[in-house]
Structures are given as C-alpha cells and as structure tokens.
C-alpha cells in the first residue's frame, strides 16, 4: 500500500501514523534487514530507510554513529535496491528513503530514482536538497512514481511553506525543533501550537519528527498532526545492544509497539 493511502486510511480511523527510521546496513546488512522487515509487524505504518553518509549536516551523534557503523561494515549504495527489494518481500509497510544528496548525485539521480522505485520504495527525502536545488530532478522522481518529501522547519517563513507544500508529496515532514536529529527536550506546549499552525497552513498530511522518543509525546503530537517519525530513539536501542541481538529486537518491538499504541484513538 502507498504512503498516501496508508495515511488516508489511518486518518479515517482517527489513528496517528507511525514512521520508524533505521539506518540501512546498521549494524550489519543481515541484522539491518531483519529490523526493517520487522518494523511493520511491530507497529510501524511507514518504514524510513536511512542512507549512511560520512558527513551529514542535519544529524545528531546517534545517527552519525549509526552511519559510521554501516559504512565500516561495507555499506554501498549500489546494494540499496536489492536491500529494499528484500525488505518488501516480507513486509507490506510502504518505504521511504532518507538520504543526504551527495551519494545520490554520485550514483546518478535518474538511476537512483529508477532503481529504488523499481525495488519498491514509495518516496524519497533528500535532507540537504531544498526545492530550489531540485530542478529537473523533481520531474524525474515523478516519472518513476516516487513521492518527494520535503522538510519544513520552525524557521521556515510562511511564503516558503506554500512552496514546500506544493512540491512535498505524499506528506510534509515537519521538523519539531531547531537543531539536529535526536536528543534534546521537546516543549510539548509550544510544539502543539506550532504543529497546529503548520497543519492549518499546508494542504498535505503532516508528519512530525526530530526528538520524539516517548509514547506521551507521540500521543500529544499525533492528535494534532497525521503522525510522528521516530528515528534516533530507535537507533539508540540498536546501538546499546550491539552484542545482544535478541534483547535489541525485544526492546525495539516494545518501543515501536508502545508508540503505536499511544497513537491509536
């Protein structure tokens, strides 16, 4: 099922969507594959596949370290399409690829869109490529039937919100706070006002991410937006249990399940 349809169905049921992020190839290809295949069963409605990069500008230390682990274990973007296809064989949750632009440019934008689309990905989010830099690539992605998701930040002025709303499909990714991915306090009161403002300003569904790690946060934000994205908190569980896979999986299941429960009416 597509992300668009998934979000629409959940909305009808009054349920918040959960997008769960992990890094492709972290801590190694096989474990990573099993994690992605399980995320849907644990409760994630959308799977977000992060592409390792040596120099991410937007990511906090938890995701940086996960990229380093994956790269050390030999992650190659060339292997991504096969990886995505493998996930899709046993998982039905729609897949979103999140990446920095340089690996994609090196791979070739057209080739990248073609390959991940035919492997079964639904959408792409290139974190350091604002709409102004996409040019023809936007049409290329559309040609391959890929959604192009863009970030919207607390610093985004009103005029730009319309621009982003126009190009961001199937949803707008609303950044919860100033700063990089991961840790840091969320001021829920202020966040709710901000999310309400964004929701009322754009036409597309709104998913909120950055710094979400607790079911209460998911519940509060989920009631204002179409859903939440969780990333660093899940990756931190992977990182803390590199030597104990059984425990890693049990805790991930509990964590993802807890967030999903909180998003249900």
């Amino acid at each position: 099922m597509s992300i668009e349809k998934t979000l629409a169905d959940l909305k009808k049921r009054g349920e918040g969507a959960l997008a769960a992020f992990a890094t492709a190839g972290d801590p190694d290809r096989e474990t990573s594959l099993d994690i992605f295949r399980s995320l849907g069963a644990w409760g994630a409605d959308i799977i977000e596949i992060g592409i390792p990069y040596s120099d991410p500008l937007m990511d906090g230390p938890v995701l940086q370290r996960s990229y380093t682990r994956a790269l050390k274990r030999g992650f190659k973007l060339d292997a991504l399409p096969a990886f995505v296809e493998e996930i899709g064989k046993t998982s039905t949750a729609p897949m979103l690829i999140m990446t920095c632009c340089n690996p994609v440019l090196r791979y070739g934008a057209l080739r990248f869109f073609r390959d991940v689309s035919s492997a079964g990905a639904d959408s792409v989010l290139i974190t350091d490529m604002p709409p102004e830099e996409w040019g023809e690539s936007l049409d290329l992605a559309r040609q391959f039937n890929l959604g192009t998701i863009f970030l919207l930040a607390p610093t985004t002025p009103m005029s730009r919100m319309q621009l982003i709303d126009g190009v961001s499909t199937p949803f707008v990714y609303c950044v919860s706070k100033m700063g990089v991915t991961g840790a840091g306090e969320l001021d829920l009161e202020r966040l709710r006002d901000y999310v309400r403002f964004v929701r009322d300003s754009v036409s597309k569904p709104v998913m909120v991410g950055f710094g979400i790690s607790e079911p209460e946060q998911a519940k509060a934000i989920g009631s204002m937006a179409d859903g939440v994205v969780v990333g660093s908190a899940a990756v931190a569980i992977i990182e803390r249990h590199l030597d104990d896979r059984a425990r890693m999986f049990a805790l991930l299941e509990k964590f993802i399940g807890g967030l999903k429960t909180a998003l249900k009416p």
Binding site: M58, D128, E132, E133, A153, P154, T155, R160, G179
Partner: peptide, 20 residues
C-alpha cells in the same frame, strides 16, 4: 541570485538553515 556559478555553488542545506 540562487548562488550558482554555472552548475557549481548553490544552497544544499537542511531546511532549518535555509531561511537563515
């Protein structure tokens, strides 16, 4: 006006920094 020297330059940054 967008900071390009031919194909070079530009503003490849996360949205949070764009308006700054």
């Amino acid at each position: 006006s967008k900071g390009h020297f031919g194909v070079f330059g530009g503003r490849y940054v996360p949205e949070t920094l764009f308006s700054a």
